[in-house]
Design a protein around this nucleic acid. Structure first.
Lengths: 258, 258
DNA sequence: TCAAAAGTGTTGTTGTTACACCCATGA
DNA sequence: TCATGGGTGTAACAACAACACTTTTGA
C-alpha cells in the first residue's frame, strides 16, 4: 500500500474488503546479539512508534489474516505465531477516533463516519521470527522501522504498550511449559547461544550446567558431531532441536504436578 | 429479551447498539456432586444446544460486556472470568449465515442484509461459578437450559464444541500454574471436596495425602478449627483459601524451572 | 603465554511418589 | 458393632540448586 491510489482505495473502500471494528496487532519478537527485540514502525504524522498490524478480509479465516499481515510486513512465512489477547478495555479501544487528526496528519480527504474511525478492538498476535531473515516493508502510513530492545521500548502510540507488555508476559510464562527457540535460533546452534536466549527472554540468570542438563534430559536438543569456530576461543559444539520431541512438547506442554 | 417488542428491536436495531462482526461466547463451568459441568442453552427452532453468549455494546469495554452477559444469564457478579480464544477460522466463522433458516425457525421478518447474518467472530470467555448460586434466565431464542457433564457434551450448534474443547484444555493447563477453586467451592470446604474437584477437572486420580500436603505447603489453603458434620462418618476439618497467597499465585503463577 | 570462552561432575537439599492403617461417626 | 469415609507419616527416589576448575583457541 504505497501509491496514492492504493491508499485512497483503502481509506474509502476498505470497509467493503475488511471486517470493521476489528484489527490485528502483531508483536514480532526477534533475537539478535543476545538481545530480545521487537519490531516497531514509525508512523508518519504521528511522529511516534507503534506495532505492525492490519485488518481481516471479509471471508478470510482469522489465522490466515494474521499470517498474511506478517508476510506482507516481514516477508516471512514460516514462523511461530500465536493469539495472545483481545484488547477492548482501554479508553483508546472504547471511544471512536478523531478524523480531524487523521486529515491533518496524512493530508487525506476523509468523511467523519469513515470506517477507520469506528471503535476497533485489536486481536493481539505474537510472533517469534528469525531476525536475520526479516525484510521489512513500510507503507504510506509508516516512514521507517526499527528493532527495539524489549527493555527499552519507548512510549508507543495507541494502546500498544499494553500489547507489548502482555505479549512479553505471555512469552515468559509460556517458556516454562513450552519449548521456545526453534524460530529464534539458526538450525544449528551452540549451548551458549540457547542459554543466552533463555536468559534474555526470562531476563534472569540461569545456571549454565543445569540448563544444558535439563534440555538434554528432556530430549529437546541433541549434540552434533560438529563445532563452530569462534575465533580465539575454544570451539563450542553445535546442537539441534529434536523435532519430534520439540513438537510433542509444544502440543502437550512441559507440565509439573499436583 | 423476552417480549416481542424487545426481540424485534434487537433484530432490527441491534446494529445501532452493538458492535457488528463480533460476539462473546461463554463457557460457564460449575461443579456439583463431584462433577464438572457446563451450562448449555437449548435453542428454539434449531432444536439443539449451544453456549450462552451475547454482543458488545458500542461504547462498552470488552470485559464489562463479558461480565454483563454473564450477569444477565446467571445473575452472578462475583466470579472468575477469563478470555481464552478468538474463534475466526472454522467455516461457520468465515461464511455469512442464512437468513432463510432464521426466518423459518423463529418466524420473524428479517432483511437479507440484517446484521445478525454478517460474518461474526466470537471471543471465548470461560467462567468458574458457584453452581448453587446460579439462576438461569432464558429468553426468546432459548427455550431451556441444562448443566451438562463435561464428559458428555452433545454435538452442539455452530462451532461451540470447539469452544468447549478449547476452554477445557485451557482450564486443565492453567490449573497447573494457577490456583483454581475459589469460585467453585464454598468459602469453607473440606480436603476431600477440593481433592475431588481437582481430580474431576484433571480427570485423573491424585494421591490424597500428597495433594493436601502440596496445597498446604504452597500456603494456598489453611486448616480451620472447625469440622463439618457429614452423617454417619468421621467429621472432616474445614479449610479455607489463604486469600493473599491465592491472589499472588493467580498473578505470578506457580512456576517450575529451567 | 595469555585472555576469553566452553566444557564438565558432584553433593546436599528439596520435592515427588508410593503406600496402608487407624479413627470418628451415626445408623 | 458395623459400614463408610476421613485423617495421618515415612521411606525411597528423582529433580533441583549450588558450585569451580580445566581445556581450547588464536592472537
Amino acid at each position: 500500500m504505497n501509491t496514492e491510489e492504493e491508499v485512497n482505495d483503502f481509506v474509502h473502500h476498505g470497509h467493503q474488503e475488511y471486517l470493521t471494528h476489528l484489527s490485528i496487532d502483531s508483536v514480532i519478537f526477534g533475537y539478535h546479539e543476545q538481545q530480545l527485540k521487537i519490531l516497531l514502525l514509525k508512523w508518519k504524522g504521528y511522529d511516534g512508534w507503534g506495532l505492525p498490524g492490519g485488518f481481516i478480509k471479509k471471508r478470510e479465516p482469522l489465522s490466515d489474516a494474521a499470517y498474511r499481515i506478517l508476510k506482507e510486513r516481514t516477508n516471512l512465512s514460516n514462523l511461530f505465531l500465536q493469539q495472545f489477547y483481545v484488547f477492548g478495555d482501554s479508553p483508546y479501544r472504547v471511544k471512536e477516533r478523531s478524523p480531524h487528526e487523521f486529515r491533518d496528519k496524512f493530508n487525506l480527504q476523509v468523511e467523519d463516519d469513515n470506517w477507520l474511525f469506528k471503535r476497533t478492538l485489536a486481536i493481539g498476535y505474537f510472533a517469534l521470527v528469525d531476525y536475520s531473515k526479516v525484510i521489512v516493508q513500510t507503507d504510506f502510513f509508516t516512514e521507517s522501522y526499527r528493532w527495539w530492545e524489549v527493555d527499552a521500548i519507548p512510549p508507543l502510540l495507541f494502546d500498544h504498550n499494553d500489547a507489548v507488555d502482555k505479549a512479553l508476559l505471555t512469552l515468559r510464562l509460556q517458556i516454562y511449559h513450552q519449548p521456545i527457540g526453534y524460530n529464534l535460533l539458526p538450525e544449528k546452534f551452540t549451548l551458549p547461544e540457547i542459554h543466552s536466549l533463555y536468559e534474555t527472554i526470562l531476563s534472569k540468570e540461569l545456571d549454565q550446567r543445569n540448563f544444558a542438563k535439563k534440555l538434554v534430559t528432556l530430549g529437546l536438543i541433541q549434540k552434533l558431531d560438529e563445532r563452530r569456530s569462534i575465533g580465539a576461543h575454544r570451539s563450542p559444539y553445535l546442537y539441534q532441536f529434536v523435532k519430534e520431541k520439540y513438537e510433542q512438547a509444544l502440543q502437550e506442554g512441559i507440565v509439573h504436578t499436583y
